[in-house]
Computed example of a mutant assay.
Amino acid sequence: MDDVLKHTLDQHRLSQLTHFSPEQIQLLMDASELGTGALASALLPLAKDKAQASISNFAVGAIAIGGSGHWYLGANVEFVGMPLPLSVHAEQAAIGHAALFDEQYIERVVVSATPCGHCRQFMQELNQDDLLLAWPEHHFMLNEILPHAFGPTDLQQTYGLLNNPTANLTASTQSAAQHKPDTLTLAAWDQANASYAPYSHNRAGVALLLNDGQICQGLYLENAAFNPSLGPLQLALSQLYLQGYTPADIKRAVLVEADAQVQQAAYAALLLGSLCDTALETLVVKSEA
């Protein structure tokens, strides 16, 4: 990393940030005299250092640059003892990070390694015609490296991953009686309402209460090709690692999901149980479909 950039990050206490505001990005550009692409590449190590690549030993960092001017970091996460499809790719983590901040549009995704086919398919769900992808010494539009793509429009979806309508999920009488909606449950409920599940209608959200009182959240992000879908717990865990915590810091974990043909609870409980002793609390609510 450039010495001037590193000094500016340290001076303004930005080194530990995982999300940069437009003002902070402008500050870094002014100090380093780097343009958007060069600055994003220079900041990639901040994301890459958060990777949890204990299986592949291949750390990847990514930055999603939103249309709002905010930049969102992401890194790959792998889970020892769990099936590989539960892994989180860096591009998924960065775009999921943006979704948690209600970002509506991604201008470009900058990544430290060539985006795999899984990630290209995941990014196709943004349903954008002009997504730029950049990695060392390369930059392409998504439609150039994923020609003849299958995506939401093939399944008659007019919106994409980040601009889907918010749901208004309601609890059944039985579930409400079994699970009082406290603050953590309501946080997971909000994420379920904001989640993207146009194919299964399994709106789902997770909230993790940490020992210091912080809350990490995740929401379900579905894909037209199904397999690149990102579960709410995986996204919440990617946020956990990104912010410098570990599963040992989880005090409580709540999943709220809609009653649908697809369900998150079983795999989410299995994954969480492989990482810590905290049990997953689950609330199933009425589907909007």
Results as ranks from 00 to 15, higher is better:
L210P: 07
V284I: 15
V262T: 08
K251E: 03
F58S: 15
L100M: 15
A31W: 01
C119Q: 07
C276A: 05
P147C: 05
D259Y: 10
D190V: 11
A62P: 12
L208E: 06
R203Y: 13
N168L: 15
E222K: 00
H139D: 09
S41Q: 12
L271F: 03
V88P: 04
S200D: 03
Q24V: 02
L146C: 07
D212Q: 04
P45D: 02
T278Q: 02
E107T: 14
L132A: 13
L270V: 13
Q217N: 12
F122Q: 08
P247G: 13
G67W: 05
L240S: 07
I250W: 01
P22F: 04
D259Q: 14
Q156F: 12
H148G: 13
Q243V: 09
G205M: 02
A171R: 06
E222T: 01
V111M: 14
S112G: 06
P22I: 10
L255Y: 09
Q121V: 07
S87Q: 09
H179L: 13
L155D: 02
L27E: 10
L283F: 11
A269V: 03
G66T: 10
V256D: 00
S32Y: 09
F101L: 08
A171P: 03
E257R: 02
L146H: 09
A40S: 08
E281Y: 00
I145D: 06
A187G: 10
Y199V: 01
A253G: 06
L44T: 10
P152I: 00
W135Q: 05
L5H: 12
N143T: 04
V60S: 05
C119D: 03
M29F: 11
F58G: 14
T158I: 12
Q261V: 11
N202F: 00
